[in-house]
Amino acid sequence: MNVDEVPLPGIGVRRDIETSSGRRIGIVAHREGSLDLIISAANDPDACVASIPLTPDEAATIGNLLGARHLVARLTEEHRDLPGVTTRQFLVERGSPFDGRSLGETRMRSRSGASVVAVLSSGEVQASPTPDFVLAAGDLLVVVGTSEGLDTAAKILRHG
């Protein structure tokens, strides 16, 4: 994927991609740390229809939402030959008992049989996370298991 990176002197940097539908979408990263999500106008590719300021939390969540779909689709494809095994994604919600606690503390594998194969955190993919990986609200867990196991996993994440 070709990401255009354009310096904006005195402001920061613009990073964007051109989608296959011909629209430009990307971010303006301000020097002081804030982010704007930008989307080009349909009738004027030089201009933007939207320039939406995002907090770091919001940006990370959007990143996780966009990235997870791709990852889950790929894993599902890989497990197609194993009947009964599926992949699902779970969001660590604000107020979840594991917000701020380590992955090991969920005892996910021993309690549900399902395993966490990746965590999407702050827009980055942590593949095969170790038990000491600390979860935070907004993280997306990619979990592989049987459908009963995944239901149990969802309960564990929500209620502890």
Binding site: P7, L8, P9, I11, D46, S51
Partner: peptide, 28 residues
């Protein structure tokens, strides 16, 4: 006035526009 230009560009939501780097380069 780089102050007024920068304010106009950000107020009108043109930071992500393609012509903005050109404008900033002239100000630089």
């Amino acid at each position: 006035s780089s102050g007024i230009a920068a304010k106009v560009i950000s107020d009108l939501g043109r930071l992500g526009n393609r012509e903005t780097p050109t404008v900033l380069a002239i100000l630089v």
